[in-house]
Design a protein around this nucleic acid. Structure first.
Lengths: 252, 252
DNA sequence: TTCGATTTGTTCGTTTTTGTTCTTTTTGGG
DNA sequence: CCCAAAAAGAACAAAAACGAACAAATCGAA
């Protein structure tokens, strides 16, 4: 189904002003409010607009909403994984934490750790750990990605290279059957790779949903990971591989 | 659930001024205070605002009490100064914004500027400008200072050196009678000096309270500043000096 | 033209929002 | 500490907006 003239006009007006009102539109097009309501409902069903009382607004927060959704996805599982991971991080060490909701969950579990130094390219992690006065926070510079508060780009990579970490806590978008960590964003991959290079020990946190997804860019292999924290048992062959690779597996 | 027109307007006003008053809003929208109260309660439930007696204030990610106190000091004056300063920043330029409440006020006035690139070592500025989709945000790395969300240290300086800005917007802790910009923190001084070096034009924003204070470390002189935005006329001799130095003075 | 499909207008019951009135809570001054 | 004024909150009634059902109109194809 395609949009009527009126509907695409409405959409244009919404793009100009960010919003449209039912009454205004009815007057402008010389039709009844009911007709406008139908148009707005359809545009809302198509995902172009969000309906509000009295009119509609542009669906601007697409990325943000996606992020909120993602955050609430498997929240309990993520918290449990994070507890397990945080328990393996002693006091008085330096830790890098990268982008991702799982990583943020770990940050929440580090709120009562003592004498930490945390470097991160994730604005949310910084905002969370501000509450822990025993934690020195270093923010890696970079271009701010609105969708998830991540800092990315060359600047981030070159900043990270100036450090060496006791621990790196990384997440990933997907984990394929061969045991490769995958991501959607190529820029983020470069950052993650640099982190792994600069860390003495690397922890991966990922819930089971990452097994069912696929992503285009390869970050690293589980070979490069020291401990992998997750919430469901892995397929047998992957478990065996992990043993061969000296990667310890921690399941909640 | 999506926000009503009025609610998103309220949120925008809060973002510009840092706070909103129930009575003002009721008058502005032509509705009763009860309706406004309901809006504010909902926005508060959604975590967008914090409710206070008489109105609501913006909920800021990185905050502490001392800082909040300082923020509300001279708030109106700071907003006016910020408006003046933001009006002199055209679309499509690169801007650096450093630490300070005055600088954050300018950030709020830049929320509807188009096609900006803003580099900052201030987490609050980044958090404010996230709302402007026309603004690319680059966060300079550094050690996070809890008291004000500033990023400081060598890392910050070396990051900033990688850029050249069309405009720099700086604040300072104090301004002495000779026309020198002073600060409390030596590390921050280094950052500010670097910023001024790397900027084609430098704007200073400072309200009159800065004249009555003193601070130990010298950042620069008003000689190095292109425009100075403030809220009270300066002593005559300083005004003359500014004219000699080719520093334009803008008083609200 | 005539049929059928689609769009629009009309009506009406339902839901949401707003205003009104009242009591309770907070605030600031003696 | 107590009191008065301002602000907040709760409950209910009024108003506005909504959605569904159906009738009227518009339009294209047979």
């Amino acid at each position: 189904m395609s949009l009527s003239f009126r509907q695409s006009d409405i959409l244009n007006m919404a793009k100009q002003n960010g919003r449209v009102a039912v009454d205004d539109l009815a007057a402008k097009f010389g039709v009844t409010v009911q007709t406008i309501r139908r148009d707005l409902s359809e545009l809302s069903d198509l995902g172009k607009l969000d309906r509000v009382h009295g009119g509609a607004v542009l669906r601007s927060g697409v990325s943000n909403i996606g992020y909120e959704d993602r955050r609430s996805l498997n929240e309990d599982a993520k918290t449990q994984i994070a507890q397990l991971c945080a328990a393996d991080i002693p006091a008085g060490v330096s830790v890098f934490m990268n982008i991702g909701t799982s990583t943020e969950a770990v940050a929440r579990q580090l709120l009562s750790h003592k004498n930490l130094m945390v470097v991160t390219n994730n604005m949310n992690v910084a905002n969370i750990l501000v509450e822990n006065p025993e934690c020195e926070i270093v923010v890696a510079g970079g271009i701010l990605r609105r969708s998830d508060g991540g800092l990315i780009g060359n600047l981030t990579v070159s900043t990270i290279r100036q450090f060496k970490f006791d621990y790196a806590i990384v997440g990933c978008s997907a984990l394929d059957a061969d045991g490769d960590l995958m991501d959607f964003d190529f820029q983020e991959v470069l950052v993650s790779q640099t982190i792994i290079e600069q860390a003495r020990r690397t922890f991966l946190v990922a819930d089971h949903s990452k097994f069912q997804r696929s992503a285009p860019a390869r970050i690293a292999s589980l070979t490069d990971i020291d401990s992998f924290y997750t919430d469901c048992p892995l397929p047998d062959d992957l478990t065996r591989k992990l043993a061969d690779w000296d990667t310890s597996l921690r399941v909640t």
